[in-house]
Design a binder for these strands. Structure first.
Lengths: 348, 348
DNA sequence: GCTAGCACTCGAGGCCGGAGAGTGCCAGTA
DNA sequence: TACTGGCACTCTCCGGCCTCGAGTGCTAGC
């Protein structure tokens, strides 16, 4: 796609980009006159019209009816986004807001993510999204069994501050001391990752008495659920109300589908995995480039954040394809950068 | 209000209720002809028209323009709701869905609430809401300090399965053994309620060395935040996408304000506290009866759920004032009943 | 290669008039 | 007195018709 830009020739590109910006700003189809005046190309509207016709031929523009102005296609937005110099500028007010938010040290990564999603949704006026780090590779600090009468709570604490719990029925044959003694065994899991701890637990279970066996398997299952299975990872969402704004002229039906999916974490997670797909850096998915965003007539801007070298999570926004990409990209990039700092610090 | 019904006279009441039901069903203003045919009152449409005019005079009906049918006012809905015999019937399919959901024993109350909210939103096609139990009166099972290197995690576990955590910077002057020894002291909190434990901690802090002092205060603060302050209680929301449905003909602006507030837990909590206000039983708040629901053109149906005798939480739905009140009331009541059973069992 | 000019297209919005739904009222009836 | 049939009236909705204007595509000419 990036070569598509040079193939276009500088003037066509300038016209296309001017149309994208004008359309994003106004929401109205853009006419040749407007571009001739605004874009400062020093040519008449007739020339612009020729360029527009060519751009439409190439699939970058379309128009709702003969006598209307042009609007960008998804390919048009794509060209615009790809043509942006990499260091997109961040509005001062936004820079300050981000700096302000991260200035107060919050020590819980999950909390920071919630706040970041809110922050992004406020800055961009779209909905914010984040995928928190999974647990597989996180070292375990503590696993405890807590005797709660008829039930037992299994509690696991990870090095980076995650806490996973599960309540199970207490095996009838096990008394308080029994629970406590298994609890002591679990001390040995300290330092292992969630993944390794599971293997270790299966070992322990194999050697243990029949009574202990079940409970140990439950613990393994808890760690598995926390780190791998369905529901292990969830998606943090915020600012959905922004999407119901008047200005975001979504059709009711489309909006509904989008909001519905945002409520279904597992589905949303899958979409986010698709659209990030091991990207090293900021990535934009525009409308029909992905079947799901296509159905929503929406675009997603995401960036990974890292702890040290390793990518541990994703943050971004979702909004209409008619999106202020530059601003959204700048905000997401900046927040991801700060989050990486927080996550890296956490790691240490 | 309940007397308002008898004051109306049986036929006026019948006409009013028929209009409410027809309007809720169709969404169109209801004409006298329709009621004369449907309501089985054995009178002509002219008589119905007279009754309608009287009901409008009394403030139970209104009409959008001269030649349109009538629609109920909030007072009209109120009369309708109050006139319902108390044991409202639950549709069979709904009864089965609720029984099915509660058949699988889930041991974590917070999880059950999330599921219940989803369930209610699915059954009613409105948005589900729940306020989980606060912690103030919950006995503490365990409080732990977990040494995580540069930080310390404070972890509190309540009798009913809640887990609260907070991560703080480790006081520079305190080593691992120091943390552990304070941890041992915290064992004495077991069995106290969150509230009592705070007082106890202030005692301990007063007697402790300066180094331990701060940490103990942090623990007290953690318990306080978990049980009382802002953010102690949150609101579980589900099925927001139902509200964006085409059929719910909300104006964009109104919908936006509703969704916005649903995202702000503290604000939503306040509204829910207002509209439940120590009600012993199912309660319906209709449109302008509360300033906030008035602004949304929405109604809220809520019911408390109990653990033993004490009310511990609230569950309900929010939808347009043009709501199927009977169905919503029946569903909310049934779910609240089941939740009470779960919560009571939990308690034991 | 660009531009001025112009014919053409098509949607938006205003106006009209008829159809239809529903009302309010009145005179008549049991 | 309470209800009803009848009827004039009101108002929205909808389709048809028109004009206006924005914007296009094309062509001839610089």
């Amino acid at each position: 796609m990036a070569e598509g830009r040079t193939e276009l020739g500088p003037r066509k590109a300038a016209v296309l980009h001017a149309i994208v910006e004008e359309y994003v700003r106004s929401g109205e189809p853009v006419g040749s006159e407007t571009i001739a005046e605004a874009a400062g190309l020093g040519v008449s509207s007739a020339t612009i019209r020729n360029e527009m016709a060519a751009l439409e031929e190439l699939g970058f523009l379309t128009h709702p009816h003969t006598s209307a102005g042009r609007i960008p296609t998804d390919a048009g937005y794509r060209h615009y986004v790809d043509a942006q110099p990499h260091g997109v500028r961040l509005r001062d007010a936004h820079r300050r807001a981000i700096a302000g938010y991260f200035a107060e040290a919050i020590l819980d990564l999950e909390e920071v993510l919630k706040g970041s999603v809110q922050l992004l949704s406020r800055l961009t006026q779209y909905a914010g999204l984040a995928v928190p780090p999974g647990a597989s590779e996180e070292p375990i600090v503590r696993v405890e069994l807590i005797d709660m009468g008829p039930t037992v709570m299994i509690l696991a604490v990870g090095q980076h501050g995650r806490v996973d719990k599960r309540v199970i029925d207490r095996p009838g044959s096990l008394d308080a001391d029994g629970v406590a003694s298994i609890g002591t065994k679990l001390q040995s899991l300290q330092g292992l990752t969630y993944l390794d701890a599971q293997a270790q637990l299966l070992h322990l279970a194999a050697e243990a008495s029949a009574i202990d066996h079940d409970l140990l398997l439950h613990v393994a299952e808890t760690l598995r659920t926390a780190s791998q299975g369905e529901g292990a990872t969830h998606v943090v969402v915020g600012g959905v109300s922004n999407l119901t704004d008047e200005a975001q002229a979504w059709r009711r039906q489309t909006l509904r589908r989008l909001v519905e999916t945002l409520e279904r974490e597992q589905e949303m997670l899958r979409v986010l995995q698709d659209v990030t797909a091991d990207r090293e850096d900021l990535w934009v998915t525009i409308g029909t480039e992905h079947p799901t965003t296509g159905e929503w007539e929406a675009s997603i801007v995401t960036a990974p954040f890292r702890a040290g070298e390793a990518t541990v999570g994703t943050i971004g926004v979702v909004g209409p394809t008619r999106m202020d990409y530059l601003s959204a990209m700048a905000s997401v990039r900046a927040v991801a950068k700060r989050l990486s700092e927080v996550a890296t610090e956490h790691e240490a």
